[in-house]
Amino acid sequence: MFLSKWFPSNWFSKNEKPTIMDMPHLVMEQVLDNVDFLTILNLRKVCKSFRNLIDDIKPINNLIIIRIYLEFRRIKVELVFDFEEVFVNFFLFYQEGPEENSCCIFKDFVEPEFAVQKDGHFVDAFLTDFEPILKNQRSKLTELEIKVNCFYYDDDYSFLSQSKPQSIFSRFLFKKFESVSTMTCIVERRQDDNIANEMIDGIWRILESRTVPLETGKLKLIVPKSSQVVRLLRSIKTNSLHGNRANQGASSPGDADLTLDSKCETFKTMEELVISKFYMGNPILDFLHIPKLNIIRDSIPREDILIIKQVGSEFFLIKLTREPLHMLPGDSDETYAK
């Protein structure tokens, strides 16, 4: 009996009415499979025993899409649910707080005043909240997207007032002296680099601790480093991978060269592979089982061309290029030289 060992046997004498705590494990499993995702999250907060039970059962839920976007100083998460063929989505934001080492969490573009403020970095707050979600996801997702897009500042972003509010005058100053602005931009990008790596490492650690790999129909990754694609692919099972390289300022030489592990189970069963802004290093024979392929290489031996001709698939697209693919608007070689 579920949790009955807590209570002395005479507690539930025959006159006592049964409660939810008396339900057998199998019944609880079936009940929790019928509870929707958001109620499960609330149920985890009810008491320790329910939290442990949910983490143990990992109930089936109606969550189908998770999109994690790292934007300028904040993480935006979009969750999509399937309520009997009706899709409902909502957004969660983890944003840098007005004070140092603080963060704000809010839902669905509410006014920043209503945000919940917490101590600690916003990436840590996000990882703490999403650890149980990513760990307990038993049912297959239709899409998982992890996108690092923190190197652009978009005017549309709603920002909380920072500790040192920028006056119109200072903005004007920055506009006028562009060299000053590029310098700060580079420093900030280095910070954003660290945040991006921290977030992806955190997600990877959570996914790695799962006993069964997370299953998703589509996987979209926009990350700064090729090694991150390889690592994430090890703990995610998918049929379709769209890999793209995040634009960023500072990068080390190997970041653009991507070699997928040909022994990786996910790679073996892949049905669609679209990689842009990474140069694939695998030999062409590794890709022959994939029906839909779109990759970039910086060189291709003559034998490989013959192999491709023999296969003759219309979906086979290999681009030969070694252009600088990750130039940001406004960036020039001068900026890097500084």
Binding site: I20, T39, L43, K45, V46
Partner: peptide, 20 residues
């Protein structure tokens, strides 16, 4: 049983399911 707690807050769930 699952419908009983649909869209309820943790406190409400505790009351409905009589969870200590």
């Amino acid at each position: 049983v699952a419908m009983m707690v649909k869209g309820k807050s943790p406190e409400e769930i505790r009351e409905i399911w009589m969870i200590p």
